[in-house]
Structure formats: structure tokens, C-alpha cells
Design a protein around this nucleic acid. Structure first.
Lengths: 281, 281
DNA sequence: GACATGGGAG
DNA sequence: CTCCCATGTC
């Protein structure tokens, strides 16, 4: 069972890449982030024969999709616990569902959560004083939103830990878990992707008992999954590891191999992210 | 000597097409219209080895360029007679030079004028009366500008007829000379490309003694050089003949063959125009 | 319908 | 740097 995750930075701009990746790597499941379109605009011709797709989309931004060769049984879209009842009753939409960032499904006996965690920058709110030029620093609205979103994700993971046997969370977490996971830890000290508060919240999640597959398999390697378009980061080899697979204990036991496939980052007009994959027996 | 003209509708969007056309058809001279960029942004990699280019560009709209395998000796950019003097003295810019639409050069002993004539639509100004709902029709500002531009072009052609032996004018004239030159003469009766005033002004130009090469070679054929993107005009075969070669008498005598090459209109993401070409001995 | 622009986002 | 959108031209 081969499972992959990929932030494609617009599935319409990258339909050819998605088709090529599915054809050449033939994953059983591919979880996409930042599809940047509504479900109706998802390019179906990106899917080779035999693949199906479930989509949580919105206009212009965010958006996640799960592509698989097995039937996809949708469990929930969004992170809120309350769902719409069948008689059209009250839906209690969590703040974390305002944007299309989370899709959960059962596929071939595995529960998968596909997520696109908020970036959170700018991290600090800067109130500029007039003549004094004084600045007071507090968390920005966007950073607070990120932290709350992470808390909601952790709550969901907690539910899954209690109730489910086999599940994984994969996607673009927008978190560098440790200083080894980015090219310039000092320069990024205050960035929402690496701030101590971010890493602490990520550790809370992992400490539920999840396994960061890539780091478990390669404890000491420098591995990145994202290289900014700006500043020639790819050619300088300056990236971040922010796309992750978190495996629940029974799936961690089934981990055969995993890796980061840098090939698609070298294709024409690539996404700034490249696929991360896991093979389970 | 093979000479071609092509409205490319953005040379940056069509750099690959221009390169392919130059490679496959190998014209000695290619005159482009609607390059839609400043000279500095012209994609030089559109030129195969051995070709050079002279550009009159501006931001976003219009813009003409002459590409050739022979040295290009620029004569003038724009239609005004007065030029900048070398000591930086007064330049008398004609109204017709406000937009980048005309470039004239000597190449291999031939004077060529590359032009992108104003479209002129909307043709009529409509003053809506309030309660009465009356409308008075007079020429629009854009149509008047087109007619004046044509008059200035005719004046330039008159100068060339008097002083020069061999010259041609080629480009996007935005004029259907006769009812045979568009798919729906009745429907287009009032359009700036086919209005009687437009055709009359075009005839004044031709009547200086110029030869409309395509029509001279194919007196009775239905031939188009432009098919609107909208309404599936290409697939319906509904076009306009608005791109022309006008030859002065000595060049008309040297006309070996000419045609409209519909191939590039069938390439991926094509221009709405296709190249028109002439072979002179 | 397919270019251009400028602004917002990452 | 490379997407998205809205508006404007033809």
C-alpha cells in the first residue's frame, strides 16, 4: 500500500504533473493540498483510469483532495465534530472549517486525514507607535488562527486515537518540527513555521503517540519537502521539511519504507512542494 | 525573398509559435503586430540563430516588430514626419504616434512598413436619451481616431510613392476591403472593420497605385486571416481577411506567389490571426 | 475567449 | 517567484 501527500500549489496549473506522478509512481492513495479551486473546477483529466477523487474545495485558496484506486468512504470534511443532520437541521461549523483544509476518509481499511494547516504568517502583530517609533509585539490574527487550528487538529487526533485502530494524518503541516528541518533555523526563529509555540503545539500532537514517518526512518538526514520559489532556494538546496506523515501506532508497525521524492520539484513549472510517500505492508 | 506578416496577440505568450514559424517557414522578413510588450521584454529566444529584430513596443497594448535575416536599417518609428533632432531639439509627435503601431525600415533593398491599424470599435457613439430613450448616432472617438490614422498612413504612402522605388506596407489593417473578405457582411455592416467609410479610406490608400497581393493572386477565393476566439469562429470557418500586403508597382511586378498559412492558427493556444506571406523574386 | 494589468497571498 | 482574482481591451 503506497500512500503519498503533495501540496500541488493549484491543481489546475499542475494537472499534467498530477497525472504524470500518478502514472509514474502509481500510489494507491494521493492526498493533495492547495488545489486552489472549487470541486466543480477540479481537472478530472489529471486522473489516470482507475483513480477516483474526493474534493473539499473553495475558490482561489486552500482546498484539499484525496485521490485513490480504492473506494473512498468520506468520513468528514472539516474539523468540526457536529455534522449536518439528514433532516437539514443545525450545523455547528467550527471556526477551523471556514477554509477548505481538512478531509477525512476510510480507504482500504485505513483512516486517512488530509490536511493543509494554516501558514500563520505574519507571526507577530506590529503596532507602530508614531513619534516614539515604539513597537509592541503580540501574536497576529493569522498566527492565533494557526495555533487554534492545530489545537482542533490535535483534538481530532485524540478522538481518533481513542476510537480507531489504524489512522494517519498527512499533508502540508506548515511546521518545521526541529532545527534540522530547515536550512536556516536562526533566520526563521520568529517565523510562524518554526516559532517555538508552533513546534510545541506540533509536539503535543505527535506526543499523542504518533510517528513522524520520515524522521523515524531517517533520524539524522537533512531532508526537505518545500523550497521557496523566491531567492533560488531550490538551486541553493535551501528548503524546509513541512509536509509530514503522522502514523498511529498500528500503522507505524506496518511502515515498510518512506521518502521524499524530489523528482517532481524538477519538472517544468513545478509546485514549490514535492511529494512525500509511505509504503505500508 | 520570402516576407510574412503576423498579428501574434502577445509575443511573450507566443514566443514558441514565433520560433516555430521562423524555423519551419524560414521567411527572410517577418513583421509582427500586437506584441503587447515593451522592447526590453521582447523574448529574444523566439529568434532562431541568424535573425535580428527591431521593435517599437509599449506596455500591455499594441506594439510592432520586424524580424529579419538581413540587416535592418530603421527609417522611422511612428507615422509623424518630424523626427527628434540629434541635439535633443523639439520632436513634433503626431497623434498617430501616441500608440506603438508603425515601424518602417530598409531591408535587403526593400522599404517595408509594418503596421497595426486601430480597430476603431465601437464605431458609433450612442447618446442615450433619458425618458424619450432617443439615441443620436455619431462616430465614436475610437472610430474617428482610426479614420485619422488611416489618413496619416495614406499620406505616408503618398510620400513613399513619390520618393521610393520599391516599398510595401504589411500588417494588421483591421479592414475588410470587400464583402468577400468576411463571413457575414450584413451583420458586420456597422462594424469599424467593414463600415463604408473604412473601406472608402482603404480604397484611397490602394488607389495610390498599390496592389493588394492576396486579392490580386486569388481574385475570387474566400480567404481569411483572422478568426475570433469567441463563438467558435475557427471551427465554423467564419473569419475575416484583415491582414494585408500592399505592394508598390515595382514590387508588384516581382510578386512570384503569396498566400495565407492557416497552420499556425491550429497550433496550441494560437493567436487569433494567422500569417500572410509573399514571395518576391 | 484569451491576452494584458495590478493587488493579495504564500 | 508563481499562483489566485478583478477589470479592461479587442
Amino acid at each position: 500500500m503506497l500512500i503519498a501527500t503533495w501540496n500541488v500549489n493549484s491543481v489546475r496549473a499542475r494537472a499534467g504533473h498530477v497525472h504524470r506522478y500518478l502514472t509514474e509512481s502509481a500510489p494507491d492513495i494521493l492526498m493533495l493540498q492547495e488545489i486552489k479551486c472549487q470541486a466543480a473546477d477540479f481537472p478530472r483529466d489529471a486522473l489516470p483510469d482507475g483513480y477516483q477523487v474526493e474534493i473539499l474545495g473553495q475558490k482561489a485558496y486552500h482546498g484539499v483532495a484525496i485521490i485513490a484506486r480504492h473506494p473512498i468512504n468520506l468520513v468528514q470534511a472539516g474539523l468540526s465534530t457536529r455534522r449536518v443532520n439528514e433532516s437539514g437541521g443545525q450545523e455547528n461549523v467550527d471556526e477551523s472549517d471556514a477554509e477548505a483544509r481538512y478531509l477525512e476518509a476510510d480507504i482500504a481499511g485505513i483512516r486517512v486525514g488530509d490536511l493543509y494547516l494554516p501558514n500563520g504568517n505574519p507571526s507577530r502583530r506590529t503596532d507602530e507607535g508614531g513619534a516614539t517609533n515604539s513597537t509592541t509585539e503580540s501574536n497576529s490574527i493569522k498566527y492565533d488562527y494557526k495555533l487554534r487550528w492545530m489545537q482542533r487538529l490535535t483534538a481530532r487526533a485524540q478522538e481518533l486515537m481513542s476510537s480507531e485502530k489504524k489512522f494517519l494524518l498527512a499533508g502540508d503541516f506548515n511546521v518545521c518540527p526541529t532545527a534540522r528541518d530547515l536550512y536556516d533555523p536562526v533566520g526563521w526563529r520568529d517565523d510562524a513555521l518554526f516559532r517555538l509555540d508552533t513546534r510545541r503545539e506540533f509536539r503535543r500532537l505527535v506526543n499523542l503517540g504518533l510517528t513522524d514517518a520520515i524522521r523515524a526512518r531517517y533520524p539524522d538526514d537533512t531532508l526537505y519537502s518545500f523550497w521557496d520559489y523566491q531567492g533560488g532556494r531550490w538551486s541553493r538546496g535551501e528548503g524546509l521539511r513541512i509536509d509530514h506523515f503522522l502514523l498511529s501506532p498500528p500503522l507505524a508497525d506496518r511502515l515498510v519504507d518512506c521518502g521524499i521524492d524530489r523528482t517532481p520539484r524538477q519538472w517544468e513549472q513545478p509546485s514549490d512542494h514535492t511529494p512525500v510517500w509511505c509504503r505500508l505492508d
